[in-house]
Design a protein around this nucleic acid. Structure first.
Length: 258
DNA sequence: ATGCCGCCCGTGGGGCGA
């Protein structure tokens, strides 16, 4: 069973690429981020026509997450994280689907840092960890997949120097991510590619894709019951190089059947 | 580097991302 995460940077602008990706790789479950559309304008018919059921948590203009499942509709468990009533960003959606608990996560970027956006990022990470602990306690196979906007280690970026002042790799961001791993969650790409050098994002600017100036910020965190079934974890780099591509590439895990 | 590119909304150009 393949579970993928893909920050598509605008589902309307990316719709042909999204359908093409679903047709070519047939993920069983797909978590999308940055759909950048309100709930009312989400292209549900196009996705259903591709053979997928879908739930979504939209927002006009930016943010927004969705969960797709081949041949069925995910059963929503929760949208949004507790702990900050005034937070109206659409960044979290969680569902039960095909025997696993899946969360689609769009963690705040946090730039510029220091500042209120960075403070929000760190608060959000704390709230995510609290929710992860609740899921953990349910002892279900679970996958927390999405754009974490955290570069976990120096070997996860093309250039430490270029990124050193960025919110994505501040010590506080890394520490918060490391606490999740410390709780027992398995970073699937890290576990399969421990030496680093695997990128999931290449900026549109500064010729980053042609010179392979990327970094790894899209992660799939597995609970023990899911990690026990891990066969493979990869990034579909090819999709970053296509016409009208997202700045992220699809990232996925393959799990043994239960 | 208040830069680069690209999406959003919406019709000019600002907000936002990473």
């Amino acid at each position: 069973m393949r579970i993928a995460t893909f920050n598509i940077n605008g589902i309307k602008a990316r719709l042909p690429r999204l359908i093409e990706w679903l047709d070519e790789t047939r993920p069983d479950i797909a978590c999308l981020q940055e759909i950048k559309t309100s709930d009312e304008t989400f292209p549900v018919k196009d996705i259903e026509a591709a053979g997928y059921g879908v739930i979504w948590h939209g927002q006009k203009g930016f943010n927004g997450v969705a969960i797709l499942a081949r041949g069925e509709t995910p059963v929503e468990v929760r949208r949004g994280l507790e702990g900050e009533a005034e937070d109206e960003h659409s960044r979290y959606l969680e569902a039960d689907v095909k025997g696993v608990r899946v969360a689609s996560i769009y963690l705040p970027n946090g730039n510029p840092q220091p500042g209120p956006k960075f403070d929000y990022k760190l608060r959000w990470m704390k709230r995510l960890r609290a929710r992860a602990a609740q899921i953990w306690a349910e002892e279900v196979p679970a996958i927390l997949a999405g754009d974490y906007n955290v570069i976990p280690r120096d070997v996860d970026t093309f250039s430490v120097k270029a990124m050193q002042d960025d919110a994505l790799m501040q010590p506080e961001s890394r520490a918060a991510y490391r606490r999740l791993l410390g709780d027992g969650w398995t970073d699937a790409i890290l576990s399969r590619h421990p030496d680093g050098g695997v990128w999931t994002f290449w900026d549109y600017q500064a010729n980053c894709w042609p010179r392979d100036a990327g970094f790894r910020i899209d992660h799939l965190l597995l609970s023990p019951a899911a990690a026990d079934r891990l066969i493979d974890a990869q990034v579909d780099r090819d999709f970053r190089g296509r016409e009208k591509a997202s700045d992220h590439a699809p990232t996925w895990v393959e799990l043994r059947p239960a």
